[in-house]
Simulated scan of single mutants.
Amino acid sequence: MSFLTENVGSSHVSSISILDTDIEINKILIVRPNHRLGNMILTTPLIQEVIDTFPNCEIDLLAKGNIAPIIFNNYTNIKDYILLPRKPFNELIKYCLVWFKVKNRKYDLVINAVKGSSSGKLLTKISNSRYKVFGEIDDKVIDKNSDSYHMAKNPIYNLRSYFSVLGLHKNERKIASLDIKLAKDEMVEGGSILKDIFKNDKKTISIFTYATGSKCYSKSWWCEFYTQLKINNPDYNILEILPAEYVSQIDFEAETFYSNDIREVASVIANTDLFIGADSGIMHLASSTKTTVVGLFSKTRKEKYKPYGNGSLAIDTNANNANQIKQIIKEVLGKRMCLMS
């Protein structure tokens, strides 16, 4: 499919004329046909960019599965969700109806949120809109912006490049961080849960010891890491956030929190001082809570998926030994304390 759709939309920009800067963009479709938690979270900066650029716009979000309405619950500009079934061949009629819906609705602008999505390109292609962003970023834009490889930032640079070609020169602001937009009552509830678990006034470090496939560190790695983390940070509580699979790489040695409510998990992490975990959907969720995140990378490319903003950073565990990781975490906590004081 990637080969077949490689050139879809490649001639779109050259086929339209330069526009007047007072063009009205009101109705927008953002296409991200994916169901994974991390990929949905990584789309939040793009949606913030669209809202910042067109504050009064109405957005339809095309995604897969049922997670998108939960993630974007507090994004008031999103008016409708067009949801593909997770298993298209099990619900073929529902799957086809989504394509008809995209074809029949009228939009001012359609944005394919990730360049590697074949179905995203095709859905953008058939959509009823004159202005379409297919996701293919110009090499000059990549050369100019060293962070354009990042999965959350790439579509924003692409969108800005498209606007530039059209003559829509908008003020380029700093790219937003990931943001699940927790409400005040959610933050309060997360704090209450944390208080009930530890029943003290210490600050808390949250850890997530699970990840899918080869991204998951071994039990021996995590047990050694957890032991050192306790020794090096006696003034902190340590909370393990458990995955949906309800497993622990440290055999439940720390206090734990488990919930199948994504926003509740986010609210608890938001009340901790630091989150440490391997590259995973939960790592991106933690990053979206504005908590400082230390991402552990051994297999995936940190330049593409690393947490950013809020003092967050990524550690290549292949290039840093245990003592170096310990020192990095110490420095991160020190900087956070300075910011909070």
Rank of each mutant, 00 (worst) to 15 (best):
D20I: 06
E245W: 07
K103I: 13
S267P: 01
I315G: 03
N310C: 06
L123G: 13
D179Y: 13
M151Q: 09
E6G: 07
I197P: 06
N310D: 12
S248K: 06
V110A: 13
Y81W: 02
I78Q: 03
T272F: 00
L122Q: 10
Y107S: 05
G334N: 15
G213H: 11
S118T: 08
E253I: 15
I262C: 00
E24V: 13
I205N: 01
S177W: 10
K115C: 13
Q249G: 08
A254F: 15
A63Q: 06
Y217S: 06
N77P: 12
M187R: 14
S287H: 01
S341G: 15
L92A: 06
L83S: 01
F275D: 04
V268S: 06
T76W: 10
K184Q: 13
A270S: 14
V188Q: 12
H12S: 09
C338A: 15
L313V: 05
A278L: 00
S2G: 12
Y81G: 00
K304Q: 11
I25S: 09
Y210S: 12
Q249K: 12
M337H: 12
V98W: 11
L242I: 10
I126E: 09
K27V: 13
V31L: 11
E6H: 13
K87H: 01
R32N: 10
L97T: 02
T227R: 10
N112V: 10
A286C: 02
S312I: 03
D201N: 07
V332H: 09
R301F: 14
D261R: 03
A152D: 02
L194A: 01
D80K: 14
R130K: 15
N26I: 04
M40N: 02
E186D: 07
D273L: 06
N232Q: 15
A266V: 06
Q48K: 14
T272S: 03
L313R: 08
K326N: 14
V141P: 01
S118F: 10
I241V: 15
Y149F: 11
E58R: 05
F100M: 02
S248I: 02
T292L: 05
V265F: 00
N323C: 07
A183I: 09
D22Q: 15
P243A: 03
L83D: 00
V114H: 14
F3Y: 09
D52L: 05
F208M: 06
F198I: 08
F257V: 06
L97N: 05
D196A: 11
H12V: 06
D60S: 13
G311E: 10
D179T: 13
I142Q: 04
R32M: 04
K153Y: 07
T256H: 09
V50Y: 08
R336P: 09
I325D: 01
A152N: 02
L285V: 02
S192C: 10
N56C: 08
N34I: 11
I142C: 04
T5H: 00
Y305A: 00
T300M: 01
E253P: 08
E224K: 10
I23G: 02
S259C: 05
